[in-house]
């Protein structure tokens, strides 16, 4: 046994032991989740392709702007497994659906509705108009106007670096042929192309022009990115192909 007075008279030692003591609770809660099978659900199509994929370069930039503008302060992205939420928002969120989110956008405050499944719910036109002037679409809304999203050109010069940073934290963006081939196996060829870092700028411009999210095909605006991001939220897992209790077994 260590003598009580030794700890109390040695500030450094006490600090270490205090930190250890208060992290026990957190460690017990978190560490087992890394080992329990099915914490992150395995969601694959019949052909063995993973349904949840990392964001495309354009969607990723949209997500960055979503974070920059603080949308998460009013919007959660986490549908809890309760009946009222299922009725309003749809299927509860899976852990798998935010596995590539660093940091995740679950949130804890809902001034506005949950956005976890807002993708494809409205048209691009609605999203653009609503972001510029929410009260023009929903008269009683308290959401702020974001007119500059449409006016600002998207800076995508560093999108490759941003993907590279996420790659370090485990998101399977590819830098070489071997990684690319693995992505083709996991996600299919179309998605694998989007995840290849050397092509990121080219892919971003292509998606923005093909999708024309902001109604102006000539430029790539921040609006293009944000709407591309909003329109993909919650749409990767095709629940219509699964029984409604497919994910019960994971808990």
């Amino acid at each position: 046994m260590m003598d009580h007075s030794k700890i109390e008279k040695n500030l450094g030692l006490m600090l270490v032991m205090v930190l250890f003591a208060i992290s026990i609770g957190g460690l017990i809660e978190v560490v087992p989740l890394f080992f329990i099978q099915g914490t992150v659900e395995d969601v694959k199509t019949a052909e063995g392709i993973k349904m949840v994929r990392p964001y495309s370069p354009l969607e990723l930039r949209g997500r960055d702007i979503y974070i920059r503008e603080g949308c998460y302060l009013c919007h959660s992205q986490m549908i809890r497994p309760f009946r009222d939420e299922a009725m309003r928002y749809g299927h509860y969120s899976l852990a798998a659906e935010s596995q590539y989110d660093h940091p995740f956008q679950w949130g804890s405050k809902r001034t506005g509705p949950d956005l976890a499944r807002v993708g494809k719910k409205y048209s691009n036109e609605w999203q653009v108009q609503h972001l510029i002037a929410p009260r023009s679409m929903v008269p009683e809304s308290v959401m702020p106007n974001y007119p500059w999203l449409l006016a600002s050109e998207l800076d995508y010069s560093d999108v490759g670096d941003r993907m590279g940073a996420l790659r370090v934290s485990g998101v399977p963006y590819s830098t070489n042929k071997a990684e690319y081939d693995q992505n083709v196996k996991d996600f299919g060829a179309d998605v694998a192309k989007q995840l290849h870092i050397p092509d990121s700028q080219k892919n971003l411009i292509e998606q923005a022009q093909a999708g024309n999210f902001d109604g102006n095909a000539a430029n790539v605006s921040e609006m293009d990115a944000v709407v591309a991001y909003l329109q993909v939220l919650g749409t990767m897992v095709d629940f219509s192909k699964l029984d409604n209790d497919s994910f019960v077994k994971y808990r």
Binding site: R80, P81, F82, R83, A86, Y92, D243, N244, D245, F247, V248, K249, Y250, R251
Partner: peptide
């Protein structure tokens, strides 16, 4: 114990997800 949308009855240990299935079925 709950019935899923295919009408298959299943019994499982308690979890919030199974509880939701039961709630949805009751509703």
């Amino acid at each position: 114990t709950y019935k899923n949308d295919k009408g298959v009855e299943k019994t499982t240990h308690w979890s919030t997800r199974a509880l939701l299935m039961k709630d949805l079925q009751d509703a």
